[in-house]
Computed example of a mutant assay.
Amino acid sequence: MAESLSPIVVIPARLKATRLPNKPLADIHGEAMIVHVWRRAVEAAIGPVLVACAEEEVAEAVRKAGGEAVLTDPDLPSGSDRVSQALERFDPEGRYTAVVNVQGDLPTIDPGIIRAVFEPLADPAVDMSTLVTEITVEEERTNPNVVKAVVGLAPGQRTGRALYFTRATAPWGEGPHYHHIGLYAFRRDSLKRFVALPQGILEQREKLEQLRALENGMRIDAALVDTIPLGVDTSADLDRARALLAPSSRS
């Protein structure tokens, strides 16, 4: 790496999800979903793993499995705020200089994807990094629920600077479009700055938190990966995760 960083993985989790209440504690083959996410993050082997919990029940499930958990203010507005507060409470001395934010609803995530989102921080000019994958399903290009990252990648290039994120179809013209995957890695100072910033005009318009960073001159680089991790938002997603994590399917 071009720069020595001391990373930590932080997984924000809260019970008050609108579409699937209590989903961090949803049972997947005898263990809470948040425990499966924690295990995948541990397998990434890039640093210690901390779960940032809005409720004591989630912390108890993580600790029972042998993990580390920190309670955060349940009224924090975003996962990024929860990650930042947990990190300050867990490590007030500042031993960890970079943090990977892994969403708590990704029980089947490939540990390699977690490693991939951290790698662009090797460039000291990068404040935060994220992931993209090339869109191959035609209707996703115009679907506003599929967030597009505008990043110029030459053939064979795996990392590039993200210029914008949008629900529209962009950029115009021939060439690939990239589906944004909402995992992030931050330099610790960049995360502290990010959560202290007011909401941006474009952030509010597009309903995309990462635009706050771009509107304030922060640099985001994106790493290209081949697959999109399954996010569990509905009972159907949960059934699919259970099928993917069934002992027979993992053997």
Rank of each mutant, 00 (worst) to 15 (best):
L71F: 00
K207Y: 14
E174T: 09
A26E: 07
S4P: 13
N216T: 05
S235D: 13
H29I: 02
R240S: 09
A59Q: 04
A241F: 01
A26S: 11
Q103D: 14
P21H: 04
A125Y: 10
M1S: 15
R187I: 11
A116E: 07
P171G: 11
L202D: 15
E174R: 08
F118A: 07
L153Q: 08
P7M: 11
T97V: 11
D73Y: 01
A45M: 11
P21I: 09
A2F: 12
G231K: 05
L191M: 10
D75L: 13
E209C: 10
L76G: 04
V58H: 00
G104N: 09
D105G: 05
R63N: 00
G112C: 00
Y178E: 01
L191G: 09
I220A: 06
A65N: 00
D27F: 05
E140F: 14
N143Y: 07
W38L: 15
L211C: 08
P77Q: 04
Y96I: 09
P107G: 00
Q85L: 10
R205K: 14
P144I: 03
L87C: 04
D123P: 12
L230T: 12
A59V: 01
A32K: 08
L76K: 04
T130P: 09
H177Q: 12
G200F: 07
E140D: 14
R39S: 03
V70I: 11
R158P: 01
E119P: 04
E140Q: 12
S190M: 06
W172Y: 15
L106W: 07
S84G: 01
E68G: 04
V195M: 02
C53Y: 01
M33F: 02
T72F: 02
A241M: 00
A170I: 01
R63W: 11
L211I: 08
I34P: 03
P176Q: 07
I28G: 00
V58Y: 00
T166G: 03
R19V: 05
H177G: 12
L71V: 07
I220M: 07
A243M: 02
R115A: 08
V70K: 08
Q199E: 15
P171D: 06
A162K: 01
L121S: 09
I114M: 05
H179D: 05
L5R: 15
H177M: 12
V147M: 12
V117Y: 05
G104C: 08
I114G: 10
L224N: 05
L131K: 06
V62D: 05
R95I: 09
R39W: 09
A223Q: 15
G94R: 03
P124C: 03
G66W: 12
V151D: 10
L183C: 03
M1K: 15
G66Y: 13
E215T: 01
D127Y: 05
R63Y: 06
L238Y: 00
S78I: 02
V132R: 03
S248I: 13
I181G: 01
P48E: 09
T166H: 08
I46H: 00
A243K: 11
A54N: 04
P120Q: 06
N101M: 14
Y96C: 06
T227A: 10
A154D: 13
P247I: 11
L245W: 00
A246S: 05
K207R: 15
P124W: 06
S6Q: 15
A223R: 15
E31H: 10
Q204C: 13
V42K: 14
A154I: 00
E55A: 06
A149I: 13
A69Q: 06
V147S: 10
G112A: 12
